[in-house]
């Protein structure tokens, strides 16, 4: 409302009206499918995951080692220079405990999602993954974690070839 308009014309639609089908709707399910070319950088990254390894790219100008890898350095705007294997361990930069599933339903078993700074990559650079084998209340900043891989035969060349990262006993 505003100083000029005190009341809007019309009738308020009630939830009951919607449920009773009094408000017409049209439904449509689009058929949208894609097959993204993963390109040079992501193809190699996915292939290495299948081998149980994490690979990064290094820029010789800023000397950053970035993972997931890309063929260009976004800070220097030039091609990156070499492939570098990094470790499958790291430390937790930040985390969240998610009590909702992707469809927004509540779950009894919360998921801990974390940004993990990967050992061997430059500081502040890492990958997003799930934390497992840990009680959510025990997860902390700087916690050391290590990848738990699927058995080689089950790997498909996907980020989920790593099942989750688990805390490392120090």
């Amino acid at each position: 409302m505003s100083a000029k308009i005190k009341k809007y014309a019309g009738e308020r639609i009630k939830t009951a009206d919607l449920r009773a089908g009094k408000v017409p709707v049209v439904r449509w399910r689009p058929k949208v499918r894609y097959a993204w070319s993963t390109g040079i950088a992501m193809s190699r990254f996915l292939k290495e995951l299948k081998n149980g390894k994490i690979i990064a790219r290094k820029c010789h100008k800023c000397n950053r080692i970035v993972v997931p890898p890309r063929m260009y350095c976004e800070m220097c705007f030039r091609p990156t220079d070499e492939w570098v294997y990094v470790k499958d361990s790291g430390i937790i930069n930040t985390y969240s405990i998610s009590y909702l599933a992707a469809d927004a339903t509540r779950t009894d078993k919360p998921t801990v999602v974390a940004v993990i700074e990967i050992d061997g990559a430059s500081k502040g650079i890492g990958i997003v993954h799930i934390i497992g084998e840990a009680k959510p209340k025990d997860v902390t900043f700087g916690m050391k974690v290590k990848a738990v891989w699927k058995p080689p035969k089950e790997r498909t060349g996907a980020i989920t070839d790593i099942k989750y990262f688990k805390p490392v006993e120090v």
Binding site: W36, T38, G39, I40, A41, R70, M71
Partner: peptide, 15 residues
Amino acid sequence: TPGLSYKEIMFEAAT
């Protein structure tokens, strides 16, 4: 262009 991602073709043209 199966060998390159959309990001990689953009980098090529932009460069």
